[in-house]
Design a protein around this nucleic acid. Structure first.
Lengths: 337, 337
DNA sequence: TTGTATGCGTTATCAG
DNA sequence: CTGATAACGCATACAA
């Protein structure tokens, strides 16, 4: 039952092809030169035996694994799902594998440590950190030992490379959009930067920009989507408010749902904005006005930067900000006169 | 720059702790016995050196990797994202890693082969196949060499274990729901089973059940979501039709969007059903009536079955069907009188 | 071009 | 309880 037949080795192949194992090694690894006739014989023998290179053995002597580790804090969210897909694809292009590690969820404390230890055991050659929650200080210890790039969020520390979409720009663009429509009293669901280094800055930018443009701002603390009902209640208690800005698309959707339950019409009575640009339905069916992040480019760019780092080159941009875009949907309109 | 400092080995640790490498091995692997005092000394030395076990070296001699491979055909879709998360979590619980492989997208042909070869190089101990597209025959060659379980779809072949949510049951439940509401003329967007072993059977079940209950069925071929516009047009051309059943939530959302563009009111004029139960907004904001699959249980169950297989036990259920649930939302209602 | 020998970091077997 | 020593599968200088 469990007596799995041992996998064939280059020695087995060598025996079958009537050559030494060195020759087989050269054939399968593509290095060194072998006679064309011999090569064919080896290839055939390997084929017949179902030989597949053993990555572990290769890694031992090569001191390379061609593997990068992706550390994801909150894996189930669509944003990170897309990011992972983009990274995996780009890594394959460069000849690297991606193994992803994430906290198993239970043990908050040493969870993170265990995840990174797993990656270390695998001898990943570099690290991609995907998390809006993990503070910079927690990343530094790893960045010291491994080339590290942070994807999807700005990172100011000089020893860490990052690829992201500028949060400030998005927040400002959305605020300008609302002010341009004529909104003068706007609620912003804010998240402290200490809680998320992505949601924090973008909501701060929204509020700041609104004030710069002369609008009155009501800040509603909203770290958790589960409390969307409270935001809705709070907003509706201020009849003067004509628009609400959410920290992310998911926050916005939760808010839309709660407003709907309370009978508030969007965008007639209240305009709503999101942030991220995840999922087709956000755009098409819901028509949520939001700031769209170029996730594919972020994931791909992060891998590109990593590969350059591994090749000993310094990436052109240590901190690369990619352009996002304002997507105007059907959840924003001029305020009711 | 690229001169990465060589990772410390058990020999380094042994030297620092003043013992032989055998002792260190016993301490870090937890096998064999060592004096408590010595153990502490070794642990401290390892700590100071930042020693981490080398998984490759360990795998070489242990002939085990504690890694299972997940082969995912279409990774970016929410359904598989959730599934992966669930599997990863459950695998960690059992002490296994999950490395996922997926076609890089470009080369349709040998793409699949390369992905599985990568998994083989890594010497994954088992395979989880997640794909509604991959036909059984393509899976068999791998299942012969590796314990294999198919997640998220039924699989009748005796040498392959599967964990899924019965497609027939869901299709029937949704059809019954519509008939119960009074619908007598219903359109079903169908997908051939040759194209998808999940979407095919469930849409077939819908159509079959509708007919059993005496309803008139219009079957609309709809393999690709991009053609949702055509489905909408087709449906609206038949004024007698009062409901449309889609093969999945995503298909349903695309359809809803197209119906909206054409001014058709849901559910007043037309009822719409989905399938899967992915994403919070499907349920809350859109209120899509659908059949909900227990994705977490499917992912977890697949891993559990795999671990049992690896332990030499025969899983209790060779083909395990998990219960789904009908979720009635706001996109279905009695037909307009 | 081909074969031989050596080492990579661990675990396991066997003496001490 | 501890210490040598032999694999594990592969790549690579080096010799033929």
């Amino acid at each position: 039952m469990t007596d799995r037949p041992r996998n064939p080795t280059i020695i087995d192949v060598a025996g079958r092809a009537g050559v030494s194992k060195s020759v087989v090694s050269r054939v399968v690894s593509g290095r060194g030169s072998v006679g064309e006739e011999t090569r064919q014989r080896v290839l055939r023998a390997a084929q017949e035996l179902g030989y597949v290179v053993n990555a572990s053995a290769r890694a031992m002597v090569a001191h390379r694994t061609y593997t990068v580790g992706a550390f994801v804090r909150d894996a189930a969210t669509p944003f990170y799902g897309h990011l992972l897909t983009a990274m995996q694809e780009r890594a394959a292009f460069h000849g690297y594998r991606v193994v992803t590690a994430t906290g198993s969820g239970r043990f908050e404390e040493d969870d993170e440590y265990r995840a990174l230890e797993t990656l270390a055991m695998l001898r990943v050659e570099a690290l991609i950190v995907c998390s809006g929650l993990l503070p910079s200080e927690r990343i530094l210890p790893f960045a010291e030992r491994l080339p590290t790039v942070v994807a999807g969020r700005p990172e100011t520390h000089p020893s860490i490379t990052s690829v992201y979409c500028d949060e400030d720009e998005g927040g400002v663009a959305l605020a300008d959009h609302l002010v341009g429509l004529g909104h003068r009293e706007v609620a912003v669901v804010t998240v402290p930067t200490s809680h998320s280094v992505t949601l924090g800055p973008r909501t701060a930018a929204m509020a700041r920009r609104l004030r710069e443009r002369g609008a009155h701002v009501l800040e509603i603390p909203g770290s958790h989507r589960e409390t969307a009902g409270a935001w809705a209640t709070e907003v509706l208690r201020h009849p003067g408010i004509t628009a609400v800005m959410a920290p992310s698309d998911r926050h916005a959707l939760a808010l839309l749902e709660q407003l709907r339950l309370r009978g508030a019409a969007v965008p007639e009575q209240l305009s709503v904005t999101g942030y991220d640009g995840i999922g087709d339905l956000t755009t098409s069916l819901i028509g949520l006005t939001h700031w769209r992040q170029p996730i594919d480019l972020i994931g791909g760019g992060a891998v590109d930067a990593l590969v350059q780092l591994l090749d000993g080159e310094q990436p052109p941009d240590h901190h690369r900000a990619l352009p996002g875009a304002l997507v105007v949907g059907r959840t924003t309109a001029p305020p009711a006169a």
